Computed example of a mutant assay.
Amino acid sequence: MANQEPLPEKEDISLFTKKVWITVGVITLLVIIIFILKAAFNVLLMVFAGALLAVYFHGLANLLERKIKIGHRWCLLVGVILTLLLIGALFWFLGAKISLQVGELTQDMPKILASVENRLGRTDIGRKLLHYLTDGSGDKMMGSFQEIFRTSFGVVGDIYIVLFIGIFFTVNPGLYREGIIKLIPSKGKERARNVLRRLDFTLKGWLKGMLIAMFFIAALSFIGLTIIGVPMSLALAFLAGLLNFIPNFGPLIAMLPAVLIGFTESANTALLIALLYIAIQAIESNIVTPMIQNVMIKIPPALIIISQVLFGTLTGALGIILATPLLIVVIVIVDELYVKQQKYS
């Protein structure tokens, strides 16, 4: 009579197959979550932009509260009204002219690019530079600059969403702050409150510095371009101040159309405009920013570029715009939850 032996091979194969299917399921779930997060990241960035807007309004309210000695809610209302009146006055007095000049700049850009291409094509160095920038195609350079302007001014929908999110956050910030704290375990709630307080303080200091720096850049750019005699100087100065919100890449993007317009006059004019922008940025980076952002944490410049490339790759223009405040949030959280704990452990 033959002995019946167990079949461990079949059991092992069944167990292996089960593990394989579990692994495939987990990987599939992770891939789906990653795609969902990537698709939703733009929404999260708009929520963060709304939070920044609320931080600005409450920072302005705190400033007014120290000056006029009335309740915070009244100061908040006054701050919102003053901001809306300031923006309205800006567009009332300058909006039509800026809009007209921006329209002219966008319309004239193909002619300006053609003129620059013609001037560069007269020299060997210019032809090599032109071929390097366009890969032999002038249409590529023209399309690139049109895309820059489309990105800079085609964000009405995002602004609308951010504005309403910012208003809701401004009206009742405690509701959302406590909602976040409720998700934290009991022993970590006090630490979470400290982190949120430090984030609020740091972002207020950063926003204050950025707004002053943007105004400084716009004013100096307008004065310098007017002295040089560059057409559409108001639109170019407005663009320079606005794009200064984006470190590293913003000033470069703002300088390009001004230099191109200078090329239509002469190479010397273009060089003078480039030197003007470089000088203004040098003053802003080395003198103005350190003075007005003394409450902001120190951020290594390389980290700003890395964060801009990372968030820009994930979400495009909105990620590049918000890369610096997002980096500030990450640095504060890491410092509060890891670095300080290492000191006391």
Rank of each mutant, 00 (worst) to 15 (best):
A258D: 05
P231I: 09
P247I: 10
F263S: 01
S233N: 13
A237S: 15
N244L: 08
P257S: 08
L256M: 15
V230R: 02
E265Q: 00
G241L: 02
I261N: 01
M255L: 09
A240S: 15
L252H: 11
M255H: 00
P251Q: 12
A240P: 07
L234R: 06
A240L: 07
P257A: 08
P231H: 09
V259P: 01
L236T: 08
L252D: 11
A235F: 09
G229C: 04
N244I: 06
L256D: 04
G250R: 04
P231V: 08
A237T: 13
V230M: 13
P231M: 09
E265Y: 00
I246V: 14
P257W: 13
L260R: 02
P231L: 08
G229V: 11
I246K: 02
P257R: 13
A240I: 09
V230H: 02
G241E: 12
G241N: 11
L234G: 04
N248V: 15
F245V: 14
F245M: 08
I253A: 14
P257T: 10
A235Q: 10
L260P: 00
L236M: 14
L239Q: 13
N248A: 12
P251C: 11
S233G: 02
I253L: 14
L243N: 09
A235D: 12
I253Q: 03
P247E: 12
L243T: 08
G262E: 02
M255D: 00
A258Q: 03
G229Q: 12
I253G: 02
P251G: 05
L234V: 08
L256E: 06
F245Q: 04
E265P: 00
I253H: 03
P257V: 11
T264E: 07
L242H: 04
M232H: 11
A235V: 10
L243D: 05
I246F: 02
A235K: 09
T264C: 01
F238I: 06
P247F: 10
L256A: 15
L236E: 06
L243S: 03
G262M: 02
L239K: 10
L234M: 14
L256C: 10
L256T: 14
G250C: 03
L242C: 10
P257N: 10
M232V: 07
P257Y: 13
P257Q: 11
G241D: 08
S233M: 06
I261Y: 12
F263V: 04
A240Q: 06
V230N: 05
N248W: 09
A258G: 01
V230F: 04
F249L: 15
L252R: 13
I261M: 11
A235P: 10
G250V: 05
P257C: 09
G250A: 06
L234E: 09
M255N: 00
N248G: 00
I246M: 13
E265I: 00
V259L: 04
I253D: 03
A258N: 04
N244V: 06
G241C: 06
L252F: 15
L256R: 05
A235S: 15
M255Q: 06
P231N: 08
V230S: 13
L260W: 13
P231C: 07
L256F: 14
A235N: 10
T264A: 02
A240Y: 12
G229E: 10
P257K: 12
L243K: 07
G241H: 12
L242Q: 07
A235L: 06
L252Q: 14
A254N: 07
F249E: 05
L236N: 03
A254I: 07
A235G: 12
L236V: 09
S233H: 13
F263M: 13
G250H: 05
F249A: 15
N248D: 07
